[in-house]
């Protein structure tokens, strides 16, 4: 009887979870073994899709682009969010203003931030180019048409857009550091820098580790802002793996191959999240 009642509580979640979370994982495996288009499944091809993947230069290129995005954004994100958290933790009357301003871009939709950036960085009549010219720097950078500059653009936009979340995690970490540690070291005559180095930083290591792992995990899923800002260009230089999966599936009409590549992504993310969960277990003791 008790069993029945409990199952009634669990049932709604259970059904939705099975259909939309668990079943797609199995379905994806099946699809990756077939030649499968947008209309229906065609024929069983075994591991052919996976073989194709290992020999596909676009797969490796886009996987590398995604990895490059992770490499570029993770350390910058950690440093920036720590810096902003330290500023927002200062005991001044600007405290709330700092925190709100650093966080506010995070609530905007990816489409909004992307087009905001496109319009601001437009050559000839974009705000940023006009501004640098008006202060006397005679340059006309093409932010989205140059390999290096388009990466700079994407990394900067991503930092601006998403740093607020990590800043708040660091802020929570900072506020958890017992005041008594600072007071004791103040009595011992420690300088501000020494306090930062020997108290603040070590105390932030656990939350820092969580932030790094969450950041890597989230960055491997990068897609929308790159699609909207550079459309993967110039010449595929910024195209991430998820965009390639999307194109193979929905423009090249090959869901089977797209599912196989999704499995590769799944595998990478699975390993990362196992590392993350292990790390968290350690934190909790």
């Amino acid at each position: 009887m008790q069993d029945m009642k409990a199952f009634l509580f669990i049932l709604p979640f259970f059904v939705v979870y099975i259909i939309f979370t668990i079943f797609p994982v199995i379905k994806g495996l099946e699809m990756s073994l077939y030649d499968w288009n947008l209309v229906k499944k065609l024929e069983f091809v075994g591991l052919e899709n996976y073989q194709k993947m290992f020999g596909d230069p676009h797969f490796w290129r886009t996987l590398w682009n995604t990895t490059l995005f992770v490499i570029l954004t993770t350390p910058t994100m950690v440093l920036l969010s720590l810096g902003l958290a330290l500023l927002a933790n200062l005991n001044t009357r600007f405290k709330t203003i700092f925190r709100s301003s650093f966080f506010i871009p995070s609530i905007l939709s990816v489409s909004v931030i992307s087009f905001l950036v496109i319009f601001m960085l437009q050559p000839y009549n974009g705000f940023v180019n006009n501004f640098i010219q008006s202060i006397g720097i005679n340059m006309e950078p093409f932010w989205m048409d140059d390999k290096v500059l388009s990466w700079v653009t994407i990394v900067m936009v991503t930092l601006w857009w998403t740093v607020g979340f990590n800043m708040i995690l660091f802020l929570a970490g900072l506020q958890d550091i017992p005041e008594s540690l600072y007071e004791a070291s103040e009595i011992d005559g420690a300088t501000g820098w020494q306090m930062f180095k020997y108290i603040t930083l070590p105390q932030l290591v656990p939350i820092g580790r969580v932030i790094i792992l969450l950041q890597i995990l989230a960055s491997y899923k990068v897609f929308a802002q790159i699609l909207l800002i550079t459309d993967g260009g110039p010449g595929g230089a910024t195209r991430p793996l998820i965009q390639y999966i999307y194109e193979v599936g929905f423009t090249q009409n090959n869901l089977g191959y797209a599912a196989a590549m999704s499995y590769a992504l799944f595998f990478i993310l699975l390993i990362l999240s196992i590392v993350q969960l292990k790390n968290q277990k350690q934190e909790e003791g």
């Binding site: 979640f13 979870y17 259909i19 939309f20 979370t21 668990i22 079943f23 797609p24 994982v25 379905k27 994806g28 699809m31 995990l217 899923k221 897609f223 998820i242 999966i245 599936g249 869901l255 797209a258 599912a259 999704s262 499995y263 992504l265 799944f266 993310l269 699975l270 999240s273 196992i274 969960l277």
Partner: peptide
């Protein structure tokens, strides 16, 4: 079994989700 869901990223199952 529910915790397992934490390790299943929606982005990686979007193709089969479309079929479902």
């Amino acid at each position: 079994f529910f915790l397992l869901g934490l390790m299943i990223p929606g982005e990686a199952t979007i193709i089969p989700l479309y079929e479902v």
